[in-house]
Amino acid sequence: MKRNIVIAALTAAALATGGTVAAFAAGDDPSDGRTAAGSGGVTAPEAIAAALKHTPGTALSADLDDDGADAWEVTVVKGDGTEYDVRITPDSGQVLGAQRDSDDDSDADDRAELAAVKGAHTDAREAALAAATKGTVTEVGLDDDNGTVAWSVDTVRDGKRGEWKVALDSGKVTQDRDDDA
């Protein structure tokens, strides 16, 4: 509401002095990974760092919720194997809370992915940083593609979505063409 008043006041002032004005309102657009905070929004690597500071462990994923909750959700696994979902505000990086994931669906694939991450040279934060050169990161997580585990990173640039693989060992970024057909 305040933003609309400021825009209206600026427009009136410009028109009163005989000038012209172009006003742009930055609204919530989860497709670009930022919020109304504009370019000051919290990035995926920053959300992961905040989550790990609050709940130490290994970050397995970070996802900018677009379900109306408007928060980063970072999945962290502690040393004892318990999983936590840590929610981070996308504008300030404040931790909203952490909740233990009570899903007991840890299968062989989950264990293999966790083992791969434990021995990896590239973590979720580094994968997000590497893929950020391709656009604004909106999601990072593990993907097991025919026995090869890599970080899967979704980005948005100029309204176009991109999907990238980041190698666990080298951090090399390649385009994910698995979904292309």
Rank of each mutant, 00 (worst) to 15 (best):
G81M: 13
A127G: 15
D158P: 15
A181V: 02
E83I: 12
A124R: 01
A131C: 15
V149Y: 07
T58M: 08
T133D: 15
A37E: 04
T136P: 09
A124C: 01
W151G: 02
L96T: 06
S152E: 15
V166D: 07
A50F: 00
P45W: 00
V137Y: 00
A37W: 05
G33C: 01
G79M: 10
D144Q: 08
V137I: 05
I88V: 10
V77E: 07
T58W: 05
R125I: 10
D176I: 06
A51K: 02
D105M: 03
A116E: 15
T55Y: 00
L114S: 15
R177G: 00
K165F: 13
D32R: 05
A131T: 10
P45S: 00
A44P: 04
V166I: 08
K53F: 01
R34A: 11
A22Y: 07
V149Q: 05
T82C: 13
G81S: 13
V137L: 02
K78A: 15
W72Y: 02
V117G: 02
A120K: 04
A108R: 04
R161N: 14
W164S: 10
V117R: 12
A23R: 12
V137G: 00
D104A: 10
N146V: 05
D180P: 02
D101Q: 07
D169H: 03
D85S: 11
E113T: 12
V6K: 09
G162C: 11
V166Y: 07
R100P: 06
T133R: 15
D67M: 08
S61D: 07
G135S: 07
N146P: 04
A51M: 01
P90K: 07
W164F: 13
W151L: 06
L64D: 06
D158V: 10
L15T: 08
T174Y: 06
V140P: 02
T55A: 02
D178R: 12
G141W: 03
E163Y: 13
D176E: 07
A108L: 03
D169C: 00
D158C: 12
